[in-house]
Amino acid sequence: MKVAGFSPVLGAVSAMLVWAAHFLVIYTVQATLCVRIGSGHEVLGLPLIPATVLGLTAAALVVVVIIGLRARNRLVSGMSGQEGEDEPQFTLWMTMAIALVSALAIVWEAVPVLILPPCA
């Protein structure tokens, strides 16, 4: 069994990278919007800041679900890697587990948006 260099590791941690990017982006966007325009604006009847954060959260969750499902599909289909290389089952299982934990972390980050005032 031959595994190509960095690719399996990057696949395994890609969901964590999405979580980290989501964390950085939602807090940066919220702080920027609070400073620039305040919390009084609305989009489609929803306050602008919570709507933006929830949209970014939905996008991040979609990406993490795709990462987890891709690993699951590779596991079910026999772990065929690129160019005939095999990927260890451990890496695929870890990718799915990390995707699940990352999805929970992304939801956890978005919960304060629903509970607290946007620019408190």
Rank of each mutant, 00 (worst) to 15 (best):
V63R: 01
V18T: 14
V111C: 04
T32F: 08
A31Q: 09
T32D: 05
V13H: 04
L54V: 08
A12M: 15
I67V: 14
S77R: 14
P47A: 11
G84E: 12
A12V: 13
A120M: 06
E85R: 05
A59Q: 02
G81L: 10
K2P: 11
L17K: 07
V111I: 14
P117S: 10
V107T: 13
G78H: 09
A58V: 10
M79Y: 02
L46P: 00
L75G: 09
L10Y: 05
V65Y: 11
L104Y: 13
V13K: 04
W93C: 13
V62D: 01
A103T: 06
S77E: 12
V113E: 04
T52W: 07
I106M: 11
P50T: 13
T52M: 10
G5H: 06
V29P: 02
P47C: 03
I66R: 09
G68Q: 13
A51C: 08
I26K: 00
R36V: 15
V113P: 00
H22F: 07
V53G: 00
M94A: 15
L114Y: 01
A58T: 09
W93E: 13
L61G: 09
V101Q: 06
E83I: 03
I66A: 12
T95N: 07
I49C: 07
V53I: 15
S80E: 15
T28C: 03
V18G: 01
M94I: 12
T28S: 12
L24C: 11
G11L: 00
A97Q: 06
M94F: 14
V65A: 13
I115N: 08
T32Q: 06
I49P: 01
L69S: 02
A15W: 03
E87C: 10
A4P: 04
T52G: 03
L24W: 03
L33I: 06
A103I: 09
L92C: 10
F23P: 00
V3F: 03
L17W: 02
L104N: 14
K2T: 14
V107F: 13
Q89G: 15
N73Y: 14
A12R: 12
L56W: 02
G84V: 10
L69T: 04
L92D: 02
L10I: 06
W19G: 03
M96A: 11
V111S: 08
V18C: 05
A12G: 09
E109H: 11
T95P: 04
V25E: 06
I67W: 01
W93S: 13
